[in-house]
Design a protein around this nucleic acid. Structure first.
Lengths: 133, 133
DNA sequence: CGGTATCCCGAACGATACTG
DNA sequence: CAGTATCGTTCGGGATACCG
């Protein structure tokens, strides 16, 4: 629970005299995670799974514009990062349930803070984009 | 401000019976902003500009691995969204100064919360990725 | 100094068809 | 039901060269 004084460890150090070195950047972990969460569907899936667990086709119907392929890839990616739990029930027909892991659930907190920021400032952003058209 | 109960307005409404409709998704504003912030350089630039204002080549040297093209595109994108202020001083040779707008500075808060989350949980993510290799 | 313009590559994404 | 396979397109991003 730090706060507004952003201090990414050993990524940005001092005002000027320390450039961000290639060896240390090389994939900044923050950027790295932001790129995962910044993909087209992950946030949506995480938010939905924040409500309860879902089965594959439930999510598919729940999002509606996502392709089966992208839903699979998104879920697999989130599962690979330990954010989503995938449980297969060997029934016929098979059924798979997706839910947030405890780790995934903790992510929901800062994510919702960011979402709140967007909601509160989307008008300003939209206005800025307009005036720059 | 709000908290863990993520409720993106008219994006996700109820647990099951309301799919996210194409007309309402159509680019979810949260995803939209996350994709901007999730690009390869924006966070880094925002964090740097959070410390003080920079001139173009200062940022270029400060990041070191970014190409001139991507730095320009990143700054223009952030400026178009009203997050960064671009001020041109008509000197010879010309000089351009970049700084965060008040709006951009408010973004620093939730962004740092997310960054903190990553810092605190990057080991777990790394471990999850390992065990899934 | 602070950019543009051009070319190119690989990854992300989408549509469609098929399957255990 | 819950995927995989294949294909084609779009887009982010890097390299290089040039410009006011």
């Amino acid at each position: 629970m730090s706060g507004t004084d952003m201090d990414v460890p050993s990524m940005v150090r001092a005002p000027l005299p320390s450039p961000v070195p290639a060896e240390e950047y090389e994939q900044c972990p923050v950027t790295d995670v932001l790129r995962r969460v910044g993909d087209k569907w992950s946030v949506l899936v995480i938010v939905l799974l924040g409500k309860r667990s879902y089965r594959f086709n439930e999510l598919h119907r729940g999002i509606e514009t996502i392709s089966q392929r992208m839903l699979t890839r998104t879920l697999r990616g989130l599962a690979a990062d330990g954010l989503v739990h995938r449980e297969v029930f060997p029934t016929v027909p098979p059924s798979v349930e997706y839910s947030l892991t405890p780790l995934g659930r903790t992510l929901l907190v800062p994510l919702s803070a960011l979402a709140d920021w967007v909601v509160q400032h989307r008008a300003e952003i939209a206005a800025a984009r307009q005036s720059r058209s």
